[in-house]
Amino acid sequence: MERLWDLCVASFWQILIPGPTMTIPLTILSFAIAMVLAVAAALVQFARLPVLRQIARFYIWVIRGTPLLVQLFVVFFGLPHAGILINAFPAAVIVFSVNQGAYCAETVRAALESVPAGQLEAAECAGLTWGQSIRRIVLPQALRTAFPPLSNSLIGLVKDTSLASNITVVEMFLAAQRIAARTAEPLALYIEVGVIYLIFCTVLTKLQRVGEKRLRVYG
């Protein structure tokens, strides 16, 4: 028992260090790109732009209908056979952002539609163009509504980055896996890495609370 405890303590930093160096950058970068994709895909649908809207629907359909792990394998192991070689980290960023973008697009679209039509009408009657009305009045309100579900997606993404271990990205889970193999103590190490993910997500949950409180200013 004491031996296991010592093992956990000894391995803690080795598992934790890929957190700030790999898991967190991967999460933040992917989520930032995902948000751009999500807002764009939501807006072209909200504006009912003819062709772009179909493209957005197709994108969301394909991405939501296929497993994330399959998408990772296609990009990292599949594309090189078509002559497109992408390193593990950028491949992971591409897949995670495109994947999250599709889910978040639906969240943002629903939030845009929940803003009463009168808000857009009043903005346009005040002399704002459609684009200005969206940017200044509708989108801020929609993003406030979307904040809790988007936080949910972000927390989901933190855990999903563990899948990147499958394409050789040395993030926290792969670090734990390697130590588990070396020490032949899978139970202790996998529980340990689970606890570390739990700590990360707890911090995010706290941040979500703070964010929600700040966004509540206008009731």
Partner: peptide, 18 residues
């Protein structure tokens, strides 16, 4: 033309985030 006019709605439609 909208810049030369203004509209007051039945249910106000004030910008809720302003």
């Amino acid at each position: 033309l909208r810049k030369k006019t203004a509209f007051v709605f039945q249910d106000y439609n004030l910008f809720r985030n302003k």
